[in-house]
Design a protein around this nucleic acid. Sequence first.
DNA 1: AGCGTGTTGAGGAGTTTCCCTCAACCCGAA
DNA 2: TTCGGGTTGAGGGAAACTCCTCAACACGCT
Lengths: 234, 234
Amino acid sequence: MDRYIEAVVAIEGSESLSAIQSAVRSTSVPLGYDRFVMFSASPAREDLVDSIYWVEGDWFGKGVTVDAETYVRHCPVTRNFLNVDEPFFWTKVMSARGEKYRVVRTPRGPGFHGLQVPVFGRTGLEGAMSFAGTRIDASARTRAVLTMIGAAAFRAARRLIEAHEPNGASSLSPREREVLRWVAAGRRQADIAASLGLSERTVENHLRRVRLRLGVATTAQAIRLAIRSGEIEV
Amino acid sequence: MDRYIEAVVAIEGSESLSAIQSAVRSTSVPLGYDRFVMFSASPAREDLVDSIYWVEGDWFGKGVTVDAETYVRHCPVTRNFLNVDEPFFWTKVMSARGEKYRVVRTPRGPGFHGLQVPVFGRTGLEGAMSFAGTRIDASARTRAVLTMIGAAAFRAARRLIEAHEPNGASSLSPREREVLRWVAAGRRQADIAASLGLSERTVENHLRRVRLRLGVATTAQAIRLAIRSGEIEV
DNA sequence: AGCGTGTTGAGGAGTTTCCCTCAACCCGAA
DNA sequence: TTCGGGTTGAGGGAAACTCCTCAACACGCT
């Protein structure tokens, strides 16, 4: 009983990506889902997908396991989750000119369907886990299960993967961040200088370095960038 | 079997707050949690809490059911979830001078403990559901269960409550939003004017109205405000 | 001691944005 | 039809920001 909760606990405790994967498989295959994609994302990027953690299965019906780049290029409904706050089902429909992917409330009948589970965090969209198959269980129950499994799997995977990477440490110095925060709060440079006990020149210099470091042209853009990278609070 | 998944499905299908509440209670009371708080939040506000959906139980050990304002004033560890991406346990410890709340990995023994479950969405933190009790089950299993239950309950409650309210429609006009987006992307007013086919004056006027409407002093602040209200993308 | 980084500050010469007022046009709602 | 909101545009002047270079000091590390 409560096997799904056990699966989540197992995923959370996993020490390798393959352990996560097999836990996800053993839960979702019986429900009809045998293709998986997991990636980190940020609404910032043009192509949305940041880096792919896991692609598995025959995603485009050609009988071959697809690789990461191919998935991104064909990426069917991914963009849709810029508009949603919750997991959604999609289905592939065949039309006169080629195949199309559509977001649906409940996918019916045979064909190629899937569930996209976005994962959110402090800074908004952080990634997603996608499940698909040709004969899937699309009940509310299953949606709840995969929502939970998908989120747990993504967080666990990110924890493992980020740990190995040098990790994009904060690229702003404490002072620079502090000044930028005040600017984002609507203060002018002169006020900030006064309240931090600095000269206006220093405040200006800090901001220039911020723009330099973030590689942006204006302070306005720096604010947006800093917000989405979690450098300053929204 | 899978009673927790059933509970989530029941919560999602609830048509009243009290239905959500009783579903939450029947799941969490057996686990030792008999005090609940649910509220919407935004990292924006000074006091963090936006509006309270549900407060129930003896939160401050005075044998009385606490009301919303009281909870906010005493609000123990709420601020902590500005720093976290996942649910966390906290515990109340008695010290020489009064009581204190601490975030802990696993609360042990008798006393007053709780689990805070933040709920995230497109725009970051959106709310939270908090569970507490004096003799709680604090296993990884239970944390997984309440994470799922809490998120589902919050979303369901918000769906019900927001539906009744006039709903804070977008406070920017399409054109204003468009101009602000470009500024946030780092373009200067002159460039924006050129690419939108407007005069620089018009761009400037749009931005002035944006500041006016959002009630802020600088465009930098307007960007942050627009981002956190979901008016423009991060 | 020498090196890199962070923090602080300046001079001078820009460019850009902000502020205020005024006005025309379109469009949908009362 | 009048009214309000959205969009477009202007003039003139003030304030704020950006860009360039240069320099001092503290701090930790090799």
